[in-house]
Computed example of a mutant assay.
Amino acid sequence: MPEAVLTAGTIQYEDSGGDGPVLVLLHGVNMDATLWRNVVRELGPGFRCVRPTLPLGAHRTAMDRPELVTHQGVSAMVGEFLEALGLHDVTLVLNDWGGAQFLVADGPNERIGRVAMVACEAFDNFPPGAPGKAIAASARVPALLALAMQMQRFRWFRRAPGAWGWMSKRPVPDDVMDAWFAPARLDPAVRRDLRTFALSTPPASELKALPERLRSFDRPVLVVWATEDRMMPRDHGRRLADLFEHGRLVEIEDAYTLIPEDQPMRLAEELAAFASGGR
């Protein structure tokens, strides 16, 4: 798997290659680039899909500078990653983790041509819902975070209401989730990165100010929300779309937050049209 050396450390990524429109697909906490595997398959060879594994707990190599693993810090890593790969006119796609909004709002965002916000943190919903708040709470005590990662080995725990059972309507395959949770379960340094991130929730004043700064982004924005989402309030989708001069909302049924898992074909259809300059 190729790697990009950034200020904070080295991250791995997957790149489908090709000359088509470029999508950079971002994931949330305790996930990696495989979140997008089904969407990439549906998009096919007409698009170049670049999928970094961010240092959010499922990364295989701990960061050299763990103090940079914060919401704003990881957002800056995304911008540095685009520069390191020489990417331009990118369609930046968020799901679950919403921290990349700081890059969109504050820059440098010249390499970003379009943004798709797919059922992600927004407004005051950092961390999102009961699962996000549970990780943040356990991070205050290192032993509790380690225990939480150990518990992720069990299917009943993964699908429990109020936990990952609220993230996707359909179970994520066991082998995918095994790979997501193994790094933070087995490597204390990766768990350190996860803990640093989980404790970095921006203060309420910063979250309150962020939406007004987002308004300055004058390129197309697609907001995709799940009508049955239990993590991201439904009205946040409309509110996000209304922030932007060129914002548009699409709602997808029969899905929770992880729309790439629950409705990959439907999501790929919307992303393909959007990244190609269509609706």
Rank of each mutant, 00 (worst) to 15 (best):
Q12N: 12
P21E: 03
H27T: 11
M31F: 10
A33H: 15
N38E: 14
N38T: 04
V39I: 12
F47P: 13
V50F: 08
R51F: 01
P52Q: 06
P52R: 03
T53N: 08
T53E: 06
L56I: 04
A58D: 04
H59K: 00
A62K: 04
A62W: 06
M63V: 04
G73F: 08
A76V: 10
V78F: 07
G79Y: 13
L82N: 09
L82W: 09
L85P: 14
V93W: 02
L94C: 03
D96F: 02
D96W: 11
G98N: 07
G107S: 09
G107V: 08
G107K: 03
P108E: 08
P108W: 12
V118R: 07
N125Y: 03
G129P: 15
G132L: 10
A136I: 10
V141Y: 06
P142Q: 07
A143H: 09
L144I: 01
L145H: 08
L145C: 06
A146R: 14
Q152E: 12
R153A: 14
F154V: 10
W156R: 15
F157D: 00
G165H: 13
M167N: 12
M167Y: 12
K169Q: 14
K169S: 09
D178C: 02
R185C: 05
F197R: 08
L207N: 07
K208R: 15
A209T: 05
L214Q: 12
W225D: 10
E228W: 01
R230G: 06
M232I: 15
M232G: 01
R234A: 13
G237N: 10
G237I: 12
R238M: 09
V250A: 14
V250N: 07
E251K: 01
E253H: 14
A255C: 14
A255Q: 03
A255G: 08
E261A: 04
P264W: 10
F274M: 01
R279C: 04
